[in-house]
Design a binder for these strands. Structure first.
Lengths: 329, 329
DNA sequence: AAAAATATGTCAATCGTTTATCAATAAATT
DNA sequence: AATTTATTGATAAACGATTGACATATTTTT
């Protein structure tokens, strides 16, 4: 049986009240008593039961972190950073992989409420506004517009999209395609497409969009990409993510298309993984650590001051362009 | 304010006891009452406060999942699978990234205890036996020998190591190197090295081990690999993980070494990611879904029957060899 | 009509901790 | 010596749900 507060009291030879006073640091306390109590706590390896504390209105220090996948390095690294920041802020991470399954996501929301989490960080989810509003908890969102009460953090997708085009153009590409997945809803991610179009227009080029279904397997995507590359119409491709860009590079190689001479490619995300293991890929780098830090920071504030009005609904973080061999040589 | 049990009772026009009976499904209950109560629960969107329930001895349905990293696709996929299985078993995952930091891991153990988790899945951790034994909770381990009370699940690393050598040999390699990181402790992972040595001996070859520090950055590893490849002594390399193998492939390309003609390479892990995005890499595939399923299964049993003696301390799951271009063409 | 089974309610204790209130004692200050 | 101030304790009421004991009423069975 785990020791409880009264055990500590007995061991230290003080009252339960005093032990609680020491733990919660309030009221008058002599150094001698504190020492005795801390010693007893150490000896018994005592940990206050956080269930009982939270039942009393103290925070649970639990945060639900909802993401659609971990096998995508971008989400893996983002979740890793979020967990790190949450830990530093003395929060624990309940990992909720929504797996693009609305039912699972709904279930998780229920569970999180039942577990009295202090707040939720939701990344690229797939439920409606109403269900998130019903939760009645501090929430911050990554890359998805939810409701007017939920702040959104995202990278500057628009600028990323247009920057990619500009870089391809400057490297000599004139037939620049947009390749990847995007939604119809007004998601921040779709701004990559808007940025692409804007820059295409500005440069007087014509836009070409080749859609991929996000949920499809890499092999199926590959088939679609092959079809695109075989036409040999494109000399530059803006990909909506780095993994797609890798498929393009592979496909180009198989078709004997020289990169970057005949085909220039830019990805999106720029994870550490890609930078380390595919340094040949040019990409638009999202500031993952900053995104994580901001999400945690905003959520902390929402938790500590739930009544404070939102100063800002949208937080857009700058992206960087990482030039590499897939573009110039 | 979130509705509570008494609110439901009031709404349904029954007593609190009856509501509790309905929720916990015991005692005599008419269908009519059940319907009324369920209706009230729905209307109020009521969720029993799991803190209060657990304080009564009910399980928290929380599991601590401790892993050293998410940015490594192997761990990301393993954690993803574990989360999936835990969810199916109605458990929630508290993600603990130990980040190879003993202090952080220690902190997490404390937190998990304070949060009354039902159990812990620990993957490749870095604390001593005593500290894990003190936790006094059901624990299962991945790839690390902890104590005699903690079952270990791992892949057949020994067979994987020897299989890799055998395949390289059959493909024509005679100077087969072992490249990667291993510990001095008797960790299951080190069996890859033992398997390598055994097969090397069996084939009458001589063994060559080139060590890499697991924690070093990819760039530093690359330097070390370059040094190895420049000697041109190896015509086959067994890597302890796929990421290292990718570095070898890159390095070989840069040095103008033809793969697989001059150099044959085998990795280890065989994540979906590698299979999808690096199909050219031959590798020893760990059965990630099976590992996850077994870990969750064993833990569930430990939780439900804590007094049952362990039938088995070690569970070794079979690996598969995935042949690809880095070996034969 | 009596006995048994079914259905619901009231009441109170409990889980482990927090916290307010009231007392009591010791030490420091005037 | 009187008055503050500092330090600890004892007691009890919460937090929200569970559960056992007991009472009462309604049905069903014999």
């Amino acid at each position: 049986m785990r020791p409880k507060l009264t055990d500590v009291a007995q061991r230290a030879g003080v009252s339960a009240t005093t032990v609680s006073r020491v733990i919660n640091n309030y009221g008058y306390l002599s150094q001698a008593t504190k020492d005795k109590v801390f010693a007893a706590i150490k000896e018994l390896n005592y940990q206050p039961n956080s269930l009982a504390r939270s039942l009393h209105g103290k925070k649970t220090q639990l945060i639900g972190v909802i993401f659609p996948s971990l096998s995508n390095p971008f989400f893996a690294e983002l979740v890793e950073q979020i967990e790190k920041r949450l830990f530093q802020a003395d929060y624990k991470t309940i990992l909720c992989n929504s797996a693009d399954d609305p039912e699972k996501e709904r279930n998780y929301l229920r569970m999180l409420m039942a577990n009295q989490v202090d707040g939720i960080i939701s990344g690229a989810h797939n439920l409606g506004i109403a269900e998130y509003d019903n939760v009645g908890l501090p929430i911050v969102s990554f890359d998805r517009k939810l409701s007017n009460n939920i702040p959104i953090v995202s990278s500057d997708n628009y600028h990323g999209g247009s920057l990619a085009v500009k870089e391809l153009y400057q490297a000599g590409a004139r037939h620049i395609y947009f390749l990847g997945s995007f939604h119809e809803a007004a998601n921040p991610t779709d701004n990559r497409l808007l940025g692409y179009r804007a820059m295409i227009d500005q440069l007087g080029l014509s836009s070409h969009v080749h859609a991929l279904n996000f949920k499809e397997s890499p092999n199926l995507k590959l088939v679609s990409i092959q079809k695109l590359l075989q036409t040999k119409l494109a000399d530059g491709i803006v990909c909506t993510d780095d993994l797609t860009a890798l498929l393009v590079l592979r496909c180009a190689k198989e078709l004997g298309l020289k990169v970057p001479e005949q085909l220039k490619v830019i990805g999106f995300d720029g994870t550490d993984f890609i930078q380390s293991y595919h340094p040949e890929l040019s990409t638009i780098v999202q500031p993952i650590p900053d995104i994580a830090a901001l999400l945690v920071d905003l959520l902390s504030k929402r938790i500590d001051q739930p009544d404070q009005k939102l100063e800002q609904l949208q937080y857009i973080l700058p992206v960087k362009f990482l030039r590499s061999n897939s573009l110039l040589f």
